[in-house]
Design a protein around this nucleic acid. Structure first.
Lengths: 361, 361
DNA sequence: CTGAAAGCGCTTACAG
DNA sequence: CTGAAAGCGCTTACAG
């Protein structure tokens, strides 16, 4: 390989040795033990002379000493790192949660690895192993199911894993369903279509049961013919468009649609519009999550808001608590978080008669 | 702290010692050296008997041995980890790039830390230090400027840092501007408004210069009164709404608007609509990036597509090349990547006369 | 109050 | 072909 004249400089930079504890202690003429203690803020605990401490700290600052985290990890058998597993990284739901996780983790000096399994079980398993080999102290699984018993604490966000040792951060789906359905009922909707989530999403069943219950309580009939389910692993609007077209094709009348999530709601709106139906004039649509794009969509989405960022924060602080063993046993199986309804422009008064699609469906 | 009866079990799990090299070698009655070599696939290189190798591999599989990465890192002075710095994690642009980075990195056994600086210089600096203390072997900066000379290679995605040792992955902005403006010109637009990016975004100036050049080439006049600039650090549609309102208030006629990015385009459309203007009938709007939401927006956005995921992949593979010193010197200062125009529904034939806002502006 | 020494779990010259 | 031993850079009993 040919190299230019910057090679030497490059190499020097590459192998730039940052000051080690050994060097620093030689400089201040103290043992590594003492210097280490001062650096780690245990100076007072060991009653090291203030003056000595200052000398150490100054020298450290002067030489830009930062402890090598790898060595520290090896010795302490702690990595100050956790692993986060999400289904898909380039996607609103996961990233909102990641934002919350970051807030909480970094202020405690923890870093995190992120991996996305893209709904492939082998990737999910493989990454678990790799993260463990990297000594992560805990794992946060976002909308992903960890099947194995892991040697570190795990917190599941929307995972619903009722296994000993995992704490779930879960939304109150009963509340969510009630919020959405009573809003729709209040607007006069009686014939409501439902789009269930993909089978692999752990929220799917819980939310559906909650909807069935809420419908019963509110005295709303759930017509099985108006219930469709998302398929495939595509997390974009495609599957929502698809099932809405099917719904339309069945010619079963409805005036409102409750989608599994916002992206699906957007897909549904596309399909409705394609069939010549107006939202919300002809059909009201309610989404779920309140992702960033929900408010700028046209029409802005009425949606059940999940406090995604809070959920990330809670997941992180809970995991940290678990790692530090600060959470009293028995550990809670779940921490419930509450949704609220954000009413925007995709819902309106129900029309007198359920409309029919006009365009080529 | 009170503990339930699962405490012992918990602790056992927490301190679960995975098999060490020492243990494994005791089991197979070989030295750690030999076992280590076999595990690392250097068995043949050291001419270790096939049979011996098999015995080692089997025992490793049986006892689920995985080398402790922390110890390995310390010894080799390599971490197989890189750091990624983004402005904001919960945002379409960065996450698309992250997806590409992940693809490339994980297949080579590398992991990455992500941190977001949220446009605060102190966070940016602090994170650099923390990542370096964690021995990252390289850094990818997404739309962020690294000012210091770092002891590891850095690759900048849309960073434009022409400093020795950093490789920039950059879009061909000249091409991008030409694509957008000739599309608009072809539709008969002559009075075009421009929304420039925030001053802190490193793309802002380059793109603007490219636009000015392309306009000259295409013989399109750039009216300074129709040029506005985004302000603040909000990465949502807010700033776009704001400046479009100002534009409207100036009552300077225009028939098309070229936004700095898709989110801004969405904000602009909101503001236009608020003023009673229809998109694309009255005003055509062109976005930039082609984030996920662009295609589902209403109207679906005509936009200049940046191959974000590819840019992430290229950034990662380039960084890996730099780390392994496989890239010939002198290193390229930049790797250029090409945009393309995605024509959707937010642009149309220019109206005969520039429209005026009708609603309370 | 401070230090000498062991050891975390690997990899890798060096020796045979 | 295989192994004994050093050492990566820390922290932390243990000793005084």
């Amino acid at each position: 390989m040919r190299r230019g004249r910057s090679y030497i400089a490059d190499m020097a930079k590459r192998f730039h040795k940052s000051t080690s504890l050994k060097e620093l202690s030689a400089i201040v003429r103290l043992s590594q033990s003492t210097v280490s203690r001062v650096i780690n803020g245990e100076g007072d605990k060991f009653r090291i002379a203030r003056e000595t401490q200052d000398r150490v700290l100054q020298a450290a600052a002067l030489h830009g000493y930062t402890a090598n985290t790898v060595a520290r990890s090896l010795r302490q058998k702690r990595s100050y790192t956790i692993g986060v597993i999400v289904p898909e990284i380039s996607e609103g739901y996961s990233t909102a949660v990641l934002g919350g996780i970051e807030d909480e983790l970094l202020k405690d000096g923890y870093f995190y690895f992120v991996v996305s399994h893209r709904h492939r079980p082998d990737r999910l398993k493989g990454y678990q192993r790799m993260m463990l080999a990297r000594a992560v102290e805990g794992i946060i699984a976002v909308d992903s199911t960890i099947e194995d018993e892991l040697p570190v604490p795990v917190v599941a966000v929307s995972g619903h894993q009722h296994r000993e040792g995992v704490v779930n951060i879960e939304l109150d789906h009963g509340q969510a369903a009630l919020l959405a359905l009573s809003h729709l009922k209040g607007l006069g909707h009686r014939r409501i279509a439902f789009v269930k989530g993909q089978a692999f999403s752990s929220d799917t069943n819980r939310r559906w049961r909650a909807i069935v219950n809420a419908a019963k309580d509110l005295d709303i009939a759930v017509d099985p013919q108006l219930v469709v389910q998302l398929e495939g692993i595509d997390s974009g609007p495609g599957p929502g468009i698809e099932v809405t077209r099917q719904l339309l094709q069945s010619r079963r009348p409805f005036t409102a649609l409750f989608a599994f999530n916002d992206v699906t709601a957007m897909g549904a709106i596309l399909a409705l519009r394609e069939a010549g139906l107006r939202v919300p004039k002809d059909i009201s649509v309610v989404g779920f999550d309140d992702v960033l794009a929900a408010s700028t969509y046209n029409p802005p989405l009425t949606t059940v808001r999940q406090p995604l960022r809070d959920m990330g924060q809670t997941a992180a602080s809970t995991l940290l608590g678990l790692i530090r063993d600060e959470i009293p046993h028995p550990q809670p199986a779940a921490i419930t978080v509450y949704p609220n309804l954000v009413v925007r422009k995709s819902t309106a008064q129900a029309p007198a008669h359920a409309p029919q699609p006009v365009a080529p469906a």
